[in-house]
Design a protein around this nucleic acid. Structure first.
Length: 488
DNA sequence: ATAGGGTTAG
């Protein structure tokens, strides 16, 4: 067994201090050793000290260790159980909770439900835990914890992050007492539906207005509210509303310096609403900027076709010691794409992995394919796809198909179009919320139309009729050109 | 002695 990095006495005494130093425990073996020491010392075998240990541990605790710790207490200790639920990975906490529900030797409290529902909200990325969360919600009702504001708020957050906006709102409306955080959870829920961007942005505004006129004491918009509302304005492309929100922030939420979160939200809002000058002005005024702030600025430059300026940001970031992340590169590629900087984009793709140590994800490959395709390098784009380390997705094929159409390559267009339709048939049954189903059929039909192969056009259109696929009308989210014109 | 909410993306 390896020796402890610190003498035992020093370590335990520092744990007993009112404010133990942060990041005291670095590795799992270190944690185990301390745990062993505590177990041999009866005086120190207390839940608060173990809780400190667990919370000072830098990474989520493995479920087996969580279990081990819990079984040392007879009867089981609720406080420690809650801390463990908080300090394991979301999915592990859900399992841990389910296990102890079946043992029925603990009667849970409000904190337990806050942590479990919070875990259900956080683990929504890959596979939905809507079913598990609903069961927790049922228990909450059964045991009378729904009247607790924090439990209710977390439940709203849970439904919204699992894409069930309707249930989130129903719960929100039923709550007798709501805090600012409750309103924030619902407003945020409307703004962060990644699969349906902008679809609930108007609901977010409506709820924000209700919040403003709410006469419940203590319920006022906070910085969190404002970040969400800015995001809603940005999604809708409503510059004048966004500007009003900015005014409200300056007036109501006074801070001597622009907060990094709100500042980033403002940069994003102005850039997406077509007002790049204002975005730059806010950006320059900010004292503290993080990766997200810089990335928002890159995105702003990218959508305005300022490719060279966007690339310069990468150097500026280095000068400010801010490391770009995966998303920053997506924005940088997008900037290259919009400005037709093919060489620069390819060069960036290689340096991303070599210099910055960021592994390319599907969206990065997608950007490069888009970049090559738009510039007319269709063969290169196709062979690039064939050499990829990950499976190409529909978005990637779609951009290649579009490039084929633009550059009149019917042969490759037909090939890619068929791959797309095949891919769609595979996902049709499993993914309910697939993006515009009609797009791929229309795109393939356009490829045939370009080649004047009318029989094939008819075939695709017939397929659409049989499958009952309807085309969607196009729309623009930018409210008016007024702001843009004033800028020029 | 334990708490809920935040910005970036093809």
């Amino acid at each position: 067994m390896q020796s402890l990095p610190m003498p035992r006495r020093y370590l335990i005494s520092s744990l007993l201090q009112p404010k133990p130093p942060l990041k005291l425990i670095k590795s799992l073996s270190h944690l185990k050793q301390i745990h062993a020491q505590l177990l041999t010392n009866d005086r120190l075998k207390s839940p608060p000290i173990l809780a400190q240990l667990i919370q000072r541990f830098s990474s989520p605790l493995a479920p087996t260790h969580a279990h081990l710790i819990l079984t040392h207490f007879h009867p089981p200790n609720l406080y420690l159980f809650n801390v463990l639920i908080r300090c394991t990975k979301p999915r592990d906490s859900i399992h841990l909770f389910a296990h102890w529900v079946s043992k029925s030797s603990l009667s849970f409290d409000d904190s337990t439900y806050v942590f479990v529902l919070g875990a259900c909200a956080r683990s929504c990325t890959a596979v939905s835990v809507l079913f598990e969360g609903k069961q927790v919600h049922a228990r909450v009702i059964k045991h009378g914890f729904l009247s607790d504001v924090m439990v209710g708020t977390t439940a709203v957050h849970f439904y919204a992050s699992n894409r069930d906006v309707g249930s989130a709102r129903r719960l929100f409306d039923e709550m007798a007492v709501r805090s600012s955080a409750t309103w924030n959870a619902m407003i945020k829920g409307y703004c962060s539906q990644k699969l349906k961007v902008g679809e609930y942005a108007r609901d977010a505004f409506a709820l924000f207005k209700e919040m403003l006129v709410s006469d419940v004491s203590g319920v006022t918009p906070t910085d969190t509210t404002m970040v969400s509302v800015l995001s809603a304005a940005s999604q809708l492309g409503v510059l004048d509303t966004g500007t009003c929100v900015h005014g409200y922030i300056e007036k109501a939420i006074y801070t001597p310096e622009l907060d990094v979160f709100i500042g980033t939200g403002l940069v994003d809002m102005y850039a997406k609403c077509g007002c790049l000058d204002s975005a730059m002005y806010v950006f320059k005024r900010m004292k503290e900027r993080n990766v997200l702030t810089w990335t928002a600025m890159v995105t702003g430059l990218a959508v305005h076709g300022k490719g060279k300026q966007a690339l310069e940001i990468l150097d500026a970031m280095e000068a400010h010691c801010v490391k770009p992340n995966s998303v920053t590169f997506t924005s940088l590629f997008s900037a290259c794409c919009h400005a037709g900087l093919v060489e620069e984009g390819l060069c960036l793709f290689h340096s991303m992995e070599r210099e910055f140590g960021i592994e390319p994800l599907i969206q990065h490959y997608g950007c490069v394919v888009d970049l090559l395709g738009r510039a007319g390098h269709l063969k290169e784009a196709y062979s690039f796809v064939k050499d990829m380390k990950v499976e190409p997705d529909a978005v990637l094929w779609r951009s290649l198909l579009n490039a084929c159409k633009v550059h009149g390559d019917v042969v490759m267009g037909e090939k890619v179009g068929k791959i797309l339709l095949q891919l769609q048939q595979q996902t049709e049954l499993s993914v309910v919320e697939s993006s515009d189903v009609s797009e791929d059929y229309v795109a393939l039909s356009n490829v045939y139309a370009y080649a004047e192969r009318w029989e094939d056009v008819g075939m695709v259109r017939d397929m659409m009729k049989i499958k009952g696929i309807q085309t969607k009308p196009g729309c623009s989210s930018v409210q008016s050109f007024r702001g843009r014109l004033l800028d020029v």
